[in-house]
């Protein structure tokens, strides 16, 4: 299977512009989740009507598998502006179980109470384990059980499907 990265990114950008207009998202804060989400957010930032710089989130300390898997390696730093009463667009590369998004939202709320959170995802793998859906999806995919998406970046950004055995 090959994936069309540009097509998915362009689709996201178009939807984002429309979504912000329809929902009156004024000067929203775009937040990328380390690492893949930050790369994707960088690509789509210019489609969002905002003067804010890209914000980043590292969810290492908010994961739900510490008891099972211990500390994950640190992938980046959380860098959020004041988010009280602001609209947030949360960006990640892949939506799988929804657990990353759960952790990300918990972390965001520890910084303040946003006016709204919109979820924008490059690839939705249709394998949710939590009631979390994306508002904006670049492309919906259904993978075989042994397949995983691998995003490499930040420049050039590329995507491939890996087979595990």
């Amino acid at each position: 299977m090959t994936l069309d990265l540009d097509k998915a990114l362009n689709s996201m950008k178009q939807q984002l512009a429309e979504y912000c207009q329809q929902h009156n998202l004024e000067n929203p804060i775009v937040v990328g989740i380390h690492s893949g989400g930050v790369w994707v957010a960088n690509e789509i930032l210019n489609a969002v009507p905002t003067s804010e710089e890209l914000a980043t989130l590292d969810i290492t300390f908010y994961r739900d598998d510490f008891t099972r898997a211990g500390l994950h390696p640190q992938v980046g730093h959380t860098n959020l502006p004041a988010i009280e009463d602001r609209h947030v667009i949360l960006v990640d590369d892949v939506l799988m179980s929804g657990r990353t998004i759960r952790a990300a939202m918990n972390e965001i709320f520890d910084f303040g109470r946003p006016a709204s959170i919109t979820l924008a995802i490059l690839f939705d793998l249709n394998s949710r384990e939590l009631p979390i859906r994306a508002d904006i999806v670049g492309e919906k995919l259904t993978l075989a059980e042994n397949q995983r998406i691998k995003l490499s970046g930040p420049t050039p950004l590329s995507v491939s499907v890996m087979e595990t055995h």
């Binding site: 300390f61 908010y62 510490f66 959020l80 009280e84 709320f109 520890d110 910084f111 303040g112």
Partner: peptide
């Protein structure tokens, strides 16, 4: 910088 100066790790 967080208003809730806590993470749920432990």
């Amino acid at each position: 910088e967080q208003s809730v100066k806590k993470v749920p790790l432990l």
